[in-house]
Simulated assay, not measured.
Amino acid sequence: MTKTALPTMLSFSAPDLREQIEALPEGTALIGISTDGRAIAVDLDTDCPHVLVCTSSGGGSTTVLRSLTAQFLHQGAHALLLDPKRISHLWAKGLPTVTHRGNVAGIHDALVGLGDEMARRLRLTDTELDATPRLIVSMDSAHSALRQLTRYWETFRGKDDPRMSPAVSALEGALWTGRAARIHVLLDGTPTIGRTLGASPHELFGTIVLARITTGTWQRLAPLAGPAPKPSKHRGRGHVIQNDEVHETQAIWMTDADVVTWLTDPDDIES
């Protein structure tokens, strides 16, 4: 395989990149460009209804979630953006098709509402569902958020209530049956996320994006993808695993300002 020299940063403002993104079919979003020159994308309607992103600190997980969420919003999707740090996705505040929640009570209530929304969607006819906007559930710092949700539930759980937080149960339900309701999860997680959600990550996520991780993390998240590659020092450079194939990929760099301008003034050609 011939490797292509990739730029150290793949900016949304790069020549022809925005046009390439806007030409993608609905339900498909570009992660980046691989070292063999291929466009590496997520197609939510085929074998990839959900995406897991796992990086070390500074590895670009928030950037990948922002880029993918923005692309689906541009295509007409709605989004539930769960931001436990409260500052990672400030671009989402004020956008009409985005529900942004940061504190644990707000995240809890939003996920419980997600369970109700999924049940409603599953009752729709195919025609009604096709006319319903796709819903993207984008969760940053999921490991921390799920621990907070579990502790929060324990503060008021009654003796007859289930032990698992209903918010965590709703997220688990979205991962297992969300495709049938046009609900898709983009999650910034860790190798232990499967223990909380009841399955191994490769069972729940059709696409896994890894960057600057340890060999142990690679073996837990991509056990069938071969030996762990050497982590890259390039910003935004990582590996995308799809169908047990590994693609070294330079991810798109899309700033908060890029996203807001694109979504609120799509005819603005500046980025």
Rank of each mutant, 00 (worst) to 15 (best):
T2C: 06
N243I: 01
A257L: 13
L111Y: 04
A167F: 09
L221M: 13
P162M: 06
T255P: 06
L17W: 00
D161I: 08
E203C: 05
D258A: 05
L52W: 04
I193G: 01
G32V: 00
R147F: 01
E26N: 13
G236H: 08
R101D: 04
E26D: 10
S138K: 03
L263A: 04
S61H: 05
D45M: 10
W253T: 10
A199C: 13
A167P: 05
I213F: 03
S232C: 14
H247I: 08
T97I: 03
F72S: 00
M139L: 15
P25H: 11
G60Q: 01
K3M: 09
H234D: 15
D268A: 11
T132M: 13
S11H: 06
P229A: 12
V240T: 03
I193L: 09
S138R: 00
S165V: 07
H239F: 15
I87K: 10
F205T: 09
D83E: 01
G76N: 10
T2M: 12
V53N: 00
P191V: 04
H89F: 15
S141Y: 07
A225I: 03
P229C: 12
W153H: 11
I21T: 02
L129I: 12
C48G: 04
G158K: 10
H239Q: 10
M254D: 00
T55N: 02
E270L: 13
Q148A: 14
D268E: 14
S169W: 08
T207V: 15
D267E: 13
A257T: 15
G198N: 03
R182L: 10
M254Q: 03
D116C: 12
A222K: 08
P25W: 09
V98N: 04
I136F: 01
R235N: 08
I252W: 02
L17V: 09
T190L: 07
P49E: 13
R195V: 12
A142F: 03
K93C: 07
D160A: 14
G206H: 01
V112R: 07
K85F: 00
P49T: 10
Q71H: 11
G60D: 05
M1I: 12
H89A: 04
R220C: 13
A119R: 15
L80A: 05
I21N: 02
L24G: 12
R134P: 06
V168I: 15
G238V: 05
G102T: 02
R38D: 14
W91T: 01
Q219S: 13
T190Q: 09
D161K: 07
G37W: 06
T35F: 10
V51Q: 01
L197K: 07
S13T: 13
I40M: 00
Q71T: 03
P25S: 04
R179C: 06
I208T: 15
L129W: 15
L95I: 11
I87S: 13
H202E: 13
M139G: 02
T35Q: 05
P229T: 07
A23V: 01
S169D: 14
P229Q: 05
S61E: 15
K230C: 12
L17I: 14
E248W: 08
I208K: 04
D244K: 06
I241D: 05
A180V: 07
M9P: 00
I107Q: 09
P191S: 10
A170E: 07
R235M: 06
I136T: 09
S11C: 09
A14P: 05
